[in-house]
């Protein structure tokens, strides 16, 4: 367990996202003395919450250096991985620049400016959805996301940069890399939440993969608890439950468009013209399961770290 050190000054990168918003509220609830600086290159929400300051800024080396220099942060939350929704493989360069190069700069600055704890939000997508996946992959499983989809290279590279850096600098900075399963909720605007609430969702006829879902509130709680309760390492984040895609769609009440996913990829390029597309890589997740083990996380946070079970999480999407 990490020692109790003062962690009052917190930087959250990617504050415009729903998950970052909920996380900052939970942190402030747990520690009213905390001072949170939230930054994003997107429009930041106008929130009047004691202890939370949100700033919109361009993600550049100069701006980050200035930020780290002016505020002596104790903790950095890096929640700014660029989403793949609505972005095709053609934007790989842009995503590599933001996710990989940006992350590398944040890591450098964290070391230079004596950050005590760094928490990075990665994703379970790094493992890849392949037909020969074993079940409940642990954190040591190979990261095979880009085997079929080169556009997921940024996701894998960002994760690998963080984990390599984490072990190399573990004496100086306590680093936690989280690989959550599908985070869903009404405040979060990620690919899976959009998919599960879209009337144009493709309902696979030829496959019925099994999914793990975690509610945004539970994920935010894990992020907040990471501050004091998780020591340096990589952690999969998922609950014990799983559900087939067909059953999940039934719970959220989405009939979707029944369609053989085997032919979805070529069709997807046509659909892009009508702006009804889903990212190519997601098609793979609609075919094959990618389930992760939560053993390591539970050894620190306990058996019942989640408030919502999978059915409740899905039902809450309807609100």
């Amino acid at each position: 367990m990490s020692e109790k050190i003062t962690k009052n000054k917190i930087l959250i990168i990617g504050i415009a996202g729903g998950l970052a918003q909920i996380t900052s509220r939970i942190i402030l609830q747990n520690n009213p003395d905390a001072e949170i600086y939230g930054v994003d290159n997107r429009d930041v929400p106008e929130v009047e919450l004691k202890g939370l300051t949100c700033i919109k800024m361009k993600f550049s080396r100069g701006n980050f250096e200035k930020l780290f220099r002016e505020h002596e942060f104790d903790v950095v939350y890096h929640l700014a991985r660029i989403s793949h929704s609505n972005i095709g493989p053609q934007d790989l360069r842009k995503r590599l620049e933001l996710s990989v190069m940006g992350t590398s700069r944040i890591l450098d600055l964290s070391l230079r400016f004596g950050i005590k704890k760094l928490i990075v939000l990665s994703t379970f997508h790094v493992y890849g959805a392949l037909s020969d996946n074993s079940i409940f992959l642990d954190e040591n499983a190979p990261l095979r996301a880009s085997v079929k989809h080169a556009e997921l290279r940024d996701v894998v590279e960002m994760d690998q940069i963080c984990t390599n850096w984490m072990w190399k600098n573990q004496e100086q900075v306590e680093t936690v890399v989280l690989r959550p399963c599908n985070i869903i909720g009404s405040q979060i605007s990620n690919t899976m939440s959009k998919y599960l609430t879209s009337h144009f969702a493709i309902r696979p006829l030829d496959y019925n993969p099994v999914f793990q879902f975690i509610h945004e509130f539970d994920m935010a709680t894990v992020l907040a608890r990471s501050l004091d309760e998780l020591k340096t390492g990589t952690y999969n984040v998922a609950t014990d439950e799983f559900i087939s895609l067909g059953d999940a769609l039934k719970i959220v009440g989405v009939k979707g468009i029944p369609f053989p996913v085997s032919v979805a990829k070529p069709l997807n390029s046509l659909l892009k013209k009508g702006n009804l597309d889903i990212p190519d890589y997601l098609i793979e997740y609609l075919k094959n399961s990618c389930l992760i083990s939560n053993k390591s996380l539970k050894s620190f946070l306990g058996e019942d770290f989640n408030r919502f079970n999978i059915k409740q999480a899905l039902n809450l999407l309807k609100i």
Binding site: L130, S131, D132, L205, D206, Y207, N208, P260, V261, S262, K287, N288
Partner: peptide
């Protein structure tokens, strides 16, 4: 893995 990833059959066998 060939059958496990095969359309329709993979899902039916699972």
């Amino acid at each position: 893995s060939f059958l496990a990833g095969f359309p329709f059959l993979g899902s039916l066998s699972a």
